[in-house]
Amino acid sequence: MPDQPIRRKRMTAERWVELLTTALDVMREVGYEALTMEAVAVRARCSKATLYRIWRGKPQMIVAALYATRRVDTGAIDTGTLRGDLLALCGQLVADVQRDTELLAALAHAVLIDPELASAMRTSLVEPESAALDGFVDRAVQRGELAARPAAAEFLPQLMFVALMARPLTEGAFLDMDYATRYIDLVIMPALLTNCPVVPPSFES
């Protein structure tokens, strides 16, 4: 009857994940710039209005998809040592490295030209992961592994991101645990164990 409210089916958790996974599948095929809500709706067998009822637009949908389907749980890592925490994180990254590398590569250009996407990714993904990495360092200071918070800790998120993204470009291979272990032992740990900031050289004669 016209005066009765329309009842909508409640979306199940399985259907929610299916929508988000479909969005990522379409993005991998066509790229972020060419991705449309309509294309996702067609592939997911739902109406475009359904997607817009859940997400304001494409940036929010993709960030939600990245968050919901992520395999890495940095906040749950606590091995008792700083090196162990970093190795455990790399173990999670390696478990699904090809998928994650491809997704980040697909978004790399879009983040530069879409401020809304960049903001959503920083708020929902980058900042929580950076906070968890800060926790690694803070616990190391509390345990006495580090005498104080090192200056290099500011760049720890960037260093971990480089480990994931740079190897396909420089060596034509994805991150693996052998590479990750050497990277942590030869690059990250020496940087964090050095508490004195680097003094730039003087150019005065």
Rank of each mutant, 00 (worst) to 15 (best):
Val63Arg: 11
Val97Glu: 04
Ile77Asp: 04
Glu18Thr: 14
Leu19Arg: 12
Leu146Cys: 06
Leu133Gln: 14
Glu38Val: 13
Glu33Asn: 04
Leu35Glu: 05
Val17Gly: 09
Asp85Gln: 03
Ile77His: 01
Thr36Ala: 07
Ser130Trp: 12
Thr36Leu: 09
Met61Leu: 15
Ser47Asn: 13
Glu18Ala: 09
Leu133Gly: 01
Cys46Thr: 15
Leu146Gly: 03
Leu156Cys: 10
Gly80Asp: 05
Asp73Met: 05
Ala23Gln: 02
Gly57His: 08
Ala88Trp: 09
Thr21Phe: 01
Ala153Asp: 06
Ile113Phe: 06
Leu112Gly: 08
Ala39Gln: 15
Val17Glu: 09
Leu133Ile: 08
Cys46Ser: 13
Gly31Pro: 04
Arg45Ser: 14
Ile54Lys: 14
Asp25Cys: 10
Tyr52Met: 07
Gln98Met: 02
Ala39Arg: 15
Glu116Leu: 12
Arg99Ser: 02
Leu103Lys: 09
Thr74Trp: 00
Ala34Lys: 13
Glu129Gly: 13
Arg45Pro: 00
Arg71Leu: 03
Asp78Pro: 00
Ala118Trp: 10
Leu117Ile: 02
Gly91Pro: 00
Gln60Lys: 05
Thr69Gln: 07
Leu112His: 13
Gln60Arg: 12
Leu156Asp: 09
Leu51Phe: 14
Gly91Asp: 07
Glu145Tyr: 02
Leu133Cys: 09
Ile62Ser: 05
Leu51Thr: 11
Ala132Val: 07
Gly31His: 10
Gly144Gln: 08
Leu82Pro: 04
Val42Met: 04
Leu24Cys: 05
Gly144Met: 07
Lys48Ala: 08
Gly31Phe: 04
Thr69Ala: 03
Leu19Met: 12
Thr74Pro: 00
Glu18Ser: 07
Asp100Trp: 00
Ser124Gly: 13
Arg43Pro: 03
Arg45Lys: 15
Met61Gln: 09
Ala49Cys: 02
Leu107Ile: 11
Trp55Val: 02
Val162Arg: 12
Ile62Pro: 04
Gly135Ile: 07
Arg45Glu: 15
Thr22Asp: 05
Gly84Gln: 03
Gly57Val: 01
Leu24Gln: 06
Phe155Gln: 14
Lys48Gln: 13
Ala68His: 02
Ala95Gln: 05
Ala152Thr: 13
Arg83Ser: 09
Asp114Tyr: 02
Glu18Asp: 14
Met121Lys: 10
Asp134His: 10
Val162Ala: 11
Val97Ser: 10
Ala41Asp: 04
Ile77Ser: 06
Lys58Gln: 01
Glu145Trp: 04
Thr79Cys: 02
Ala64Phe: 09
Leu66Ile: 06
Thr74Tyr: 02
